[in-house]
Amino acid sequence: MKKLRIVAFVLVACALFLGGCRTAPIQNIEMAPIVSTSQQARSMESVKNAIIKGGYDRGWQMSDVAPGHLVATLNVRSHQAVVDITYTPENYSINYKDSTNLKHKGNVIHSNYNAWIKNLASSINRELGQLSPQP
């Protein structure tokens, strides 16, 4: 009977350990530079439009809440991620705001969240790279 309790304890411990393997520290993107091939800056409007298009390309719903500030929401099955995107003509940031069913606790979240943010930033960078500087 004692061996059965030990085996049960080990199985429960392993299940708890493996259940936590799908979480990781939240990775925000802080002040990612908007690279320009010329000395001319891009406009706030063109940066906003590039960010919105990059988000839409990845399935994010984008809401314009203030100049230089968007809120983006991604719904995947029963999961939801919400981020704040702030931007200027020189840089942008993506920061965690809220989530549903992503095991968020403190500064830890389901590892898929970080992959979604990385993909969002990649799409934004692609769109920003296609912008022409403003005269």
Rank of each mutant, 00 (worst) to 15 (best):
A13R: 01
K97I: 09
A50C: 05
S63Q: 15
I34K: 09
N119D: 05
I52W: 03
N91S: 14
T100V: 14
E30I: 15
Q80H: 07
I34V: 13
K48A: 12
Q80W: 07
N91H: 12
K53I: 05
R77E: 12
L131K: 09
L4C: 02
S132R: 01
N125M: 02
S111Y: 05
S63L: 15
A8P: 05
H110R: 02
M1P: 00
Y56T: 13
E30W: 10
N101W: 04
V12A: 07
Q61D: 14
P133C: 06
G20W: 07
V12K: 06
T23Y: 02
C21Q: 14
S122A: 04
I29W: 04
L70T: 14
R126Q: 09
M44K: 04
W60E: 10
I117C: 02
A24M: 09
E127A: 03
S78F: 08
R77M: 10
S43E: 07
K48N: 09
G55E: 01
V108N: 10
M1S: 05
V47F: 00
L128F: 00
T73N: 07
I6W: 00
H104V: 05
M1I: 02
K105Q: 12
S123A: 15
G68V: 11
G106H: 10
S122Y: 13
I109F: 13
P33M: 05
R126T: 08
D84R: 13
E90P: 04
N112A: 15
V35T: 01
T100A: 13
S93T: 03
Q40V: 01
W60D: 13
K3S: 02
F17S: 02
E30A: 15
N112S: 14
G106K: 07
S132Y: 06
D98N: 15
S43H: 05
S36W: 07
N114D: 08
C21A: 05
G68M: 12
A72N: 06
L11M: 04
R126L: 12
S122E: 01
K105R: 14
A66R: 15
P67S: 13
M31I: 00
N101K: 12
Y96G: 02
N114V: 09
N75Y: 10
L131G: 01
A15R: 00
I51F: 00
L18G: 04
P25T: 07
N119C: 00
D84K: 12
E30N: 15
K97L: 15
V47M: 04
Q80F: 07
G55T: 01
Y92K: 07
V82M: 13
G68R: 12
E127I: 00
L74I: 09
Q27T: 13
N114L: 02
L18I: 14
I117D: 06
E90V: 08
V65Q: 14
Q80Y: 08
V65T: 15
E45S: 14
W116I: 08
Q27S: 14
Y96A: 07
Q39C: 02
T100H: 09
A32I: 03
E45P: 00
L74M: 13
V76N: 11
S46M: 04
S43V: 03
R77C: 04
V10G: 01
Y92H: 06
D64I: 13
T73Y: 09
V76K: 12
A13H: 03
S43N: 05
A15K: 00
T86I: 12
K118T: 13
V76R: 11
Y113A: 04
S43M: 08
G68H: 13
